[in-house]
Design a protein around this nucleic acid. Structure first.
Lengths: 235, 235
DNA sequence: CGGGGAATCAAACACACGTTTGAATCAAGT
DNA sequence: ACTTGATTCAAACGTGTGTTTGATTCCCCG
């Protein structure tokens, strides 16, 4: 006979609703191992509840998964809100801020956020929870980026071109989150920190974009290069 | 248990060897559904062999998975080989070719090849088969790209900066393959073709990179801000 | 107190999975 | 024709899974 004293039941923060504990534990497990590989027994063990609790509170595993994706999404949305700027902020500055914010959100410096990893899974292998996630979470950011770019180039690019540039920027940030392990294998060990730190990355992506759009000097200063070009021309 | 060399057995003209059929079917199934969600029964059904065949030829499911990843890799490697250039080819042209080739390989226009999807899974959620894949398949391409960029900027960027630029280019291509479904939700229906066609994409990524590096005119022609002294009249 | 609905629990269920088995089939060698 | 060993097959095994069950405990209101 096991009598559970309410005071020693609290491995987690005390007095949190079981439903919440399950959602949180499920999010972590799903983010780590994926849907198929995580068992409801693992989730319940991590949450400190009986196996039957999942079905009691959520009906079945699938509905728990969808709920945990939404839960992660909501938590994360409040955690790193969209940046806001005073009127008259130069668009180049907005772009810089946006990229830093986006990277912050994706890579979650400081604490590795399982919420992002869970949503990333949803983006990479869409299930039913995906469309809703895109509309609520991805599209607003995407269109904010497009509008910043539009302002930056002063309406000189078509919407199609703007979206292409936006996707270029997102792709650069995306790679580090989605394929971080492979990136880690490609760059030398001692260089890894500089590839996974916020500031250098954000600077690179920003100046790369600004240079491509003609709003900053190219990464290579072409004026100092004339001599080399001449040498090369002989081959 | 000793296996007989297939070559000295009487050949069946119509059907391929069972081992090959299993590898092919397994690759397709794994690429589509992932490791956990794919059952050996499904694979054997698709391959037209008995369930026991997997264990007979490969030992267990895990080894079949690793073999099928290698198999896909080898097939794909021969299918879209690394481009080669005559000495003296301008690096900008090499970059263009590389990007087109890389996109061709990633997106596989025509029919989406399950081999790439399988390898993509390995990149996104690395297993034991990953490291080998990176060394044989990813790294050579990556270092080729870095060397092209190095030639392009004529040694004016550090290796770290070169790798950053290379990862920027790869990230842009990568996004369309890894998150194609989400990209499809973000751009208008009628624009989708232009975002998933080889030529426009390759042009965009290439000119984006060339402009950022100061080797081509920016995407936006800014009359007031930047004096554009460089005109790419060389050739 | 004590009755009753909500919550929790240990145990079991039903099923699908990877894997094994042992007999049947086949192809070649002698 | 018989032997031999590789291959194929239907059937079963053991295990881990999501889910259900029925009893038990908790908590609150009368």
């Amino acid at each position: 006979m096991v009598l559970v004293d309410p005071s020693d039941r609290a491995e987690k923060p005390a007095a949190v609703e079981p439903r919440e504990r399950i959602l949180s534990a499920a999010g972590r497990e799903f983010a780590e191992r994926g849907y198929e590989s995580t068992t409801v027994r693992d989730i319940c063990l991590a949450a400190g509840v009986n196996v039957a609790a999942v079905n009691y509170y959520f009906g079945d595993k699938q509905r728990l998964y969808i709920e945990s994706v939404k839960h992660a999404h909501e938590q994360r949305a409040g955690q790193v809100p969209l940046p806001e700027w005073a009127a008259g902020t130069p668009p180049a500055r907005k772009l810089q801020d946006f990229i830093a914010n986006f990277l912050e959100r994706m890579l979650g410096f400081g604490q590795p956020p399982w919420q992002v990893r869970l949503m990333m899974r949803e983006v990479l292998h869409p299930t039913d929870a995906c469309r809703e996630l895109v509309e609520d979470y991805v599209r607003p950011r995407f269109e904010l980026l497009v509008s910043i770019l539009d302002e930056l180039v002063d309406g000189q690019l078509s919407q199609t071109e703007l979206r292409r540039v936006a996707l270029s920027i997102i792709g650069q940030c995306f790679l580090y989150r989605a394929a971080g392990a492979v990136v880690g294998m490609l760059v030398p060990r001692e260089e890894l920190k500089s590839h996974h730190s916020l500031a250098p990355l954000a600077d690179h992506v920003t100046s790369y974009a600004l240079a491509a759009l003609g709003k900053a000097r190219p990464l290579v200063d072409t004026r100092q290069q004339t001599l080399h070009v001449r040498e090369e021309a002989s081959s």
